[in-house]
Design a protein around this nucleic acid. Structure first.
Lengths: 214, 214
DNA sequence: GCAAATTAATGATTTATTCAAG
DNA sequence: CTTGAATAAATCATTAATTTGC
């Protein structure tokens, strides 16, 4: 076997740049059609499948949240350090109070989870209203992202008629072969602001997100 | 529209019976091919899709674990009731110490999560070795369950060549149309015992699981 | 009895956590 | 250490049981 049984996707710089641009522009949870479109778009920069796109957004979103929480808890802790039983920072950072993969939290909380965060706020002095730690399920762009509909399309999509789905909705060309004509600024995703909690932290004044890729 | 836009799957008694039998026989995390097979098998008892099967096993497994944890915590609490600050059972069952959807746990633990359970055991006196609370990721039967490959197959599976995948491996007939000839005992899933933590609590002495459906 | 109101189950999604390749 | 991949936990949402007032 020349290619090995299973090797994980390794995004090319171009793919990564495009994905990050989409993310910066507010895309968080692309639906099946969007995933297909993005996959096709990125496939001219290297091997890629729909699930790679799906996972990339999932992980990127999760790790963004994680970083935010970490920063928040951290700053909260340092602001009220004296309350935490005279434990120095490294004492619970380095000694197993918090696993390296878990979210930072003051020692008395143990491992932080979505469920325990409220207690943290109860125990603290200030509400920290400005930063929503646990966003509700309404956080997605479209609610009809169904991994089950994302299948094999990237493999046998060459002349699959199901491909021309939401292309119009997204304002993307609906060429039936991998789009290899980038170098253009496209109108990507209509940013219907649905009261989302954590959407588009970057500047966004127009009603649609655009992405420049090259 | 006769059927309405979107209504969730409502399993028929036959479908439920078969699924539960498979679960009893040790199936926990069917892979894509198994899901396809099961879907096809159950489709003659009513409308069903691959994702329904996938979700059913996921939910059933999770809620089994939940029940087990609840029972364990419960019995542990009653065994060491005196330690819990003289709180009667209803005092923390009924007054918001434990949300109705969360796992039962003694009040000092707050909401139970997989992460907090170890602390619970640390705090307690006995190890309760016999029941593994938080099973590792190696808990699945096959590691290649990919929801992304489960798609539309139930919709346009009639003459899809990809269908005859693991049928042999599973010892199931590979008819290309929905199997509507039940009333038979089939050899279903080879129970390769891979050091699983929470597998097949029911009696299972042979090396393969069988299911009788009618 | 029976239908509105409540509650319990459970199907479907999203989020958090963990594993492991590189 | 970063991050792609996968699983488990938590949550949401709809349907079925069940209760309650008539």
């Amino acid at each position: 076997m020349p290619q090995g049984p299973t090797t994980r996707w390794c995004p090319t710089p171009e793919q990564l740049m495009i994905l990050e641009e989409m993310y910066r522009n507010g895309l968080r949870t692309p639906n099946a059609s969007q995933i297909q479109q993005i996959t096709r778009q990125l496939s001219c920069y290297g091997r890629i499948e729909g699930k790679n796109v799906f996972y990339w957004f999932q992980n990127h979103k999760a790790r963004d949240r994680q970083k935010l929480r970490r920063r928040l808890s951290m700053s909260y802790y340092f602001a009220h350090q004296s309350r935490f039983q005279n434990l120095a920072h490294h004492q619970f950072m380095d000694q197993g109070f918090v696993s390296p993969h878990s979210t930072f939290l003051p020692p008395f909380m143990g491992i932080q989870t979505a469920s325990t965060v409220p207690f943290f706020h109860q125990a603290g002095a200030e509400p920290m209203q400005e930063a929503v730690i646990h966003e509700p399920a309404s956080f997605l762009i479209g609610s009809d992202r169904r991994p089950w509909e994302t299948e094999h399309v990237s493999q046998a999509h060459a002349n699959d008629p199901n491909y021309h789905d939401l292309m119009m909705v997204m304002g993307l060309e609906s060429a039936s072969s991998p789009c290899c004509r980038p170098l253009k600024t496209l109108d990507l995703f209509p940013t219907k602001s649905t009261g989302l909690k954590e959407e588009c932290t970057s500047s966004k004044s127009t009603s649609s997100c655009t992405i420049t890729y090259c």
